[in-house]
Structure formats: C-alpha cells, structure tokens
Design a protein around this nucleic acid. Structure first.
Length: 489
RNA sequence: GGUCGCGUGGCCGAGCGGUUAGGCAGUGGUCUGCAAAACCAUGUACAGCGGUUCGAAUCCGCUCGCGACCUCCA
C-alpha cells in the first residue's frame, strides 16, 4: 500500500500527510446526530463524507474502527400540557418515554443512512449508555483541578486550563478575546467566567432525562459524551475526529480541553470538518427552520422541491462538491446531479457489456493515477468525478466503435470503475429489477418482437403505443442499432 | 463587535502563478420513421480597483457583496 493520502487537519490549518498512530489500524470518530428530530439534508453531508473516508481508508488496506455517536441526552423537556387531565397522564404507558422518542428518531436516522448507502459504523454508542463513564471523567477533571462544583453543577475552568494548555487552538479563539466578547446570558451566574462550560448540570424539574451523581440529580454536559466515548472505544489517542464545521466551536474545542485536562494528553491527531449545506446561501438548520428532511428529499414532499430526488442523487450531489466548501441546495443543481449520475451509471452498464478489441486505440493508463491523485488530495471527489466522466467518453466511444480497448485494458478499466464508483464513492449499481420476476425478460422480448414487427411494417402507431404504454408502467424502451433495449426506472 | 471563510461563464462546481476542469442547460451536426441515448463541434468566466511578476482566477493591499462561528446545531 503506497501511502500518499493527504487530509486537511483543522488543527494545523493545512493539508497533512495521513500517518496513522498504529498502522494498519485507524481510529475514526465522527459526531453523529442529536436524536430528537428527523434527519435533514444537512445531516447527510457528514454521513456521506465520512462514509467516503471510511470506505477509502478500507480500500487503502487500513483496519478502521469507525465510531459515530448518537446524542440522546439533551434538553428534552416536558411540555406540561395544562389542559389535560394530569391523573390520566400518570398511566405509565400513556406518557411518552424519553427513550421512546430517542428510539423513534434513531430508527428513522438509520433508515435514512441505509438509503444513502452509508456503511454502518463499527460502534454507534449512545450518550445515555455511558453516564457512569461520563461521571468518571468529570471526577478526573475535578481531580486535576480544571473544574469546580457550584450548586450541584460542575463547570470546566477554562481560565485555569488555559494557564497550562492552549484553549482555542482548534477554533482559533483567544481566551482574552472570549472574555471581552462573551455576553452574559441568563443562568450563567454560577460560572466563574461566562465561557466556562458545564460538565455536569443539575436538572431543573422539567428535564426528563436525569441521573444521580455525587453532585446532584442531573445530566452530563453537552460536550462530555464525545470525549468519553471516543477515548473509550478508540483509546486516549486516536487518529481522526470528524464532524460538521459548526461543531468546531465550542463542541470540539471543549472536547480537546476535556480530554487534555483529564489525561494530560491530547486525544486527536487529525481533526476534519465538513462544511455546511446552505439553502439560498444560508445554513440549513433546525434553529432557522429552513431545512429539508431527508424523507422529504426522497419523496419530493416539500414546498421547495420540484420533484423527488432519490438518495443516490443526493449522495452524488454531495460528492460533486468538495467537502470543505459550502454547498448550496437548489432544484436545478440536484437535477443536474441526477442527470450526471444517470450518465455515469449508464456508462457503468455499457462498460460491462463492452467487447475487447485486438489492441487499444486510446491510452487509459493515466486515468487511474489521476483518479487516485484527486482522492489523495484531501478527498477531492469533484476532480475524481471529472476524471471518471473523461472515462465515460472513452467508454461510449468504444461502444460506438470509434475506439477500441484491449482485453487487459478493458479488465483494468472495469476494475477501476467498480472500485471507485461502487466501493469508494458508494454509489450503488442499478439492481436488476427485471430479473426478479421470473419470466419478465421473456415477456419483454415478446413485446419488443411484436413492436419490431410493427416497425418493419411501418405501423408506427402500434410501435409507439407499445413504447408509450410500457413507459407508463415505468419501463423505458430505446432503439439502438442492435435492436431495442429496455430498462426499468 | 471579535474570529474565520467565500465571491469563477445561464446553473452547480474544480482550480493554490504559465497548459481544455467536469456535470447540467443551450446551439449546430451525425444517427433515427419519431423518441431516447450516444458521438462530434461549439462558450470574450474568474466581484471591483490598485500592486508584485516576463506572466495572476491563483500572491499582496484596499473597496463592495455574502456567509459561518462566538447560543442547541451536521
């Protein structure tokens, strides 16, 4: 395995050669979703990008452990419906269990992830399942003197920490600036400094998810789970930590601080951040309410959508842009991706059927290298895809008889495209739906034979009627020099 | 306000000092009964103004516009 992969490390603000701590093993941790809502388009980006990274690392021969958490410890609150009969609500099963809500969204998330053809992580830990470990880390940080307790809550002492370590190294913040720029918010009177963050929070009555600890009945702070679960499953030092750019500060900065404060060691070697999906140039987010749920993308049921886009199109759309650039949603852009993807996948089918020539009339030796150069350059999938389309031209020319490929070249090209398109980019081949129904093929051949006969007799009315009605059934017929072909949507 | 980033042809989107990015759309052609697909050909792009350089979309400065983070957020 020749190692040329470079990735952009947010920590160093530059591309770096990827060198795992303990090759061939690679530890990869990615911040997953908060499971109190349906997944939207924005959630799909890190899922697809880090799935791509995972696939590529495996392709390169690394033994990767991919951990992606589920945040199920949040600010879930009771809505306290005043009008309802409180006594009736006491019935255990009539009240929604917090875990029931989380489970519902976890199930939905998993479904969406499968649709996007992402490989499931090796471990998908839930914050609620790691409360004892989180409590232990709070204790460790307290022991090291980088936290303080106040009224049952425990806060991280940023000022103390920054005397010894560099708080802000990931996000580029300076503690002095934070001091002057952080506004005083409500409920922060317990903190020594406004930029201190909670490690353990005493629960207010409306908080549903709560656990006992030596400090109070409460819940762990927002940033703690990732520090705890990443080091639990990947070790105190591991290779790659990924997540959305919006998590860089404070979430990831706090993670660094927590891990460093607890163990004295920084946990993560490479930090990778995907940029945001925007809509009309603005970040798609829950708080802005301008997001499109993945289910809506796939069904087309959203006021901004002119049509449904299948998950593969959404995946391809994201791969056509570089992961560190913002990507703006629009129907036009998605439609262009849909067409492009169809063209690529059509070429994949053509490639399988190509007959080898005596010798090659085109040089394909450079394609492979170009493709991997692009991938190795911080996962530059837009460039990779551009090269793949160059190959599509060649494939089509061979099919048209204008060019030829030797047997070896054809074999190599097939292997390359299969590796890149299916295995690395994670685009799925069209299933052979046609053959699932036993004698469909024979029936189709019968119809096409009748249609060919009609055409021969210049009975185009009948020929077109057959084609149009098949079309309505989702079957496309196209005439080629070698006779008619058919395919299903 | 502080910190960071971006502004590329009709749309999306690469590019990191000198060579065609690519996709979609458009136009002309080949093929076709018609479609579709495919193939061939086809575009005075780099926010503006200065500067550095033999040479800048690419480096520097300023101006304008947009966005992200600083609060839960992928």
């Amino acid at each position: 395995m020749e190692q040329k992969l470079k990735i952009y490390n947010t920590l160093k603000r530059k591309k770096q050669k990827f060198e795992p701590i303990n090759p061939p093993f690679v530890g990869l941790y990615v911040c997953g979703p908060t499971v109190y809502g349906d997944a939207h388009l924005g959630h799909a980006r890190p899922a697809v990008i880090f799935d791509l990274l995972y696939r590529y690392l495996k392709y390169l021969g690394y033994k990767v452990r991919y951990v992606r958490n589920l945040t199920d410890v949040g600010h879930l609150e009771n809505d306290a419906d005043e009008g309802e009969d409180k006594i009736a609500k006491k019935a255990r099963l009539e009240e929604l269990e917090p875990m029931e809500i989380a489970q519902r969204y976890i199930n939905a998330y998993h479904k969406n992830m499968r649709q996007l053809n992402t490989i499931e992580p090796n471990i998908e830990p839930q914050a609620s399942g790691h409360i004892p470990e989180q409590i232990k880390m709070v204790e460790q940080i307290l022991e090291q003197g980088f936290a303080y307790e106040k009224n049952g809550s425990v806060y991280f002492d940023v000022e103390k920490y920054s005397e010894k370590y560099d708080y802000g190294k990931l996000s580029g913040r300076v503690v002095e600036d934070l001091k002057s720029n952080t506004r005083d918010l409500q409920g922060q009177t317990e903190k020594k400094n406004p930029f201190d963050f909670a490690l353990w929070k005493k629960a207010e009555p409306e908080h549903i998810m709560r656990w006992d600890s030596e400090w109070s009945n409460g819940f762990p702070g927002w940033h703690l789970e990732c520090s705890v679960m990443s080091t639990k499953y990947l070790g105190e030092q591991f290779d790659i930590h990924g997540g959305g750019l919006d998590l860089q500060f404070p979430h990831h900065e706090c993670e660094i601080a927590q891990s460093t404060a607890a163990t004295g060691n920084e946990a993560v070697k490479y930090w990778m951040h995907n940029n945001m999906i925007t809509i009309d140039g603005q970040k798609m987010s829950k708080s802005l309410g301008n997001f499109i749920k993945l289910d809506e993308m796939f069904s087309g049921e959203h006021k901004l959508l002119e049509q449904a886009f299948n998950p593969q199109v959404v995946r391809f759309f994201m791969l056509q842009a570089h992961y560190r650039k913002p990507l703006d949603f629009s129907n036009k852009a998605l439609k262009a991706s849909e067409k492009g993807l169809n063209r690529l996948m059509e070429a994949m089918r053509v490639l399988e059927k190509l007959e080898p020539g005596k010798r090659s009339t085109v040089d394909i030796s450079g394609i492979k290298e170009k493709c991997f150069t692009a991938l190795n350059d911080d996962l530059n999938t837009p460039i990779l895809i551009a090269h793949l389309f160059d190959g599509v031209k060649i494939i089509n020319s061979v099919k048209a008889g204008k060019e030829a490929l030797s047997k070896d070249d054809l074999t190599n090209l097939r292997a390359l495209y299969s590796d890149l398109v299916y295995d690395v980019l994670g685009l799925t081949p069209e299933e052979e739906k046609a053959n699932t129904q036993g004698n469909t093929e024979q029936l189709m051949q019968l119809l096409l034979k009748l249609r060919a006969k009609a055409k021969k007799n210049k009975d185009f009315e009948t020929a077109d009627a057959i084609r149009n009605e098949l079309n309505e059934l989702g079957i496309n017929v196209k005439d080629t020099p070698d006779g008619a072909e058919w395919s299903m949507d």
